[in-house]
Simulated assay, not measured.
Amino acid sequence: MSTGAIILPYRDRLPRIAADAFIAPGAVVIGDVEIGPGTSVWFGCVIRGDVSPIRIGARTNIQDGTVVHVATADGPSHIGDDVTIGHMALIHACTLADRSFVGMKACVMDRAVVESDAMVAAGALLTPGKRVPAGQLWAGSPARFVRTLTDDEHEHHRKLCEGYVSLGVEYRANVLLDAGSAL
């Protein structure tokens, strides 16, 4: 974890964050939240597990300005391993399975499921209860099936996840320490 992030308890539940996760300065993590190893939460993100839990797996990247929230007691958010969530996305009381991808400014709503190796395109609105099957790309508002993802796109996503893990390591080791010593 890093300095400068706001980590707050809610109803006596303190977020549990893997020692090697990167939480950027200005990110806010509240309540019943678990963040797995190698995961990065970037600048300006809000992850608020107040009325239900949020579980985030390993090596996932949640990019700048994203909000992850929950609904009432039956509305948790589950985000798997190796997931990419683009800048300024809204993730609300839904499930993003391992290796799924949510594009920039997309909105994934209550009880929606994005299966493994599936993608919600940038700017898409995945309405409540919808399910994006494994390997499919959905786009639009409301989002609907566009096509099957290619092997090249799956490989690109894998490399993107690896790149964000490396970037998080670099920020933890160098950038934040350099900024702190400059003050």
Rank of each mutant, 00 (worst) to 15 (best):
T3W: 14
G4H: 05
G4N: 05
I6Q: 09
I7Q: 02
Y10I: 06
R13W: 01
L14D: 06
P15T: 08
R16I: 10
I17Q: 03
A19L: 07
D20H: 08
D20C: 04
P25C: 04
G26R: 07
A27D: 04
I30H: 04
G31W: 00
G31C: 01
V33Q: 00
I35P: 00
I35N: 00
W42S: 10
F43P: 02
C45E: 00
V46I: 15
V46C: 05
I56P: 01
A58S: 15
Q63H: 14
Q63C: 06
T66Q: 03
V68S: 04
V70T: 15
A71N: 11
G75S: 07
P76E: 11
H78P: 02
D81G: 00
D81A: 02
T84K: 01
I85D: 12
A89K: 05
A89F: 05
H92G: 12
A93H: 03
T95I: 14
L96V: 07
A97L: 08
M109N: 08
R111A: 12
R111M: 13
A112T: 08
V113T: 15
V113H: 09
V113R: 14
V114G: 09
E115S: 10
S116I: 07
S116F: 06
A118F: 12
A121F: 06
A122E: 02
G123M: 08
A124S: 03
L126W: 03
R131D: 04
W138F: 14
A139K: 08
A139P: 09
A139W: 07
S141R: 15
P142K: 12
A143C: 09
T148H: 14
L149M: 10
D152C: 00
E153C: 10
C161S: 14
G163L: 04
Y164H: 10
S166T: 15
R172V: 00
V175Q: 13
D178L: 14
D178Q: 12
G180R: 15
L183E: 14
L183Y: 13
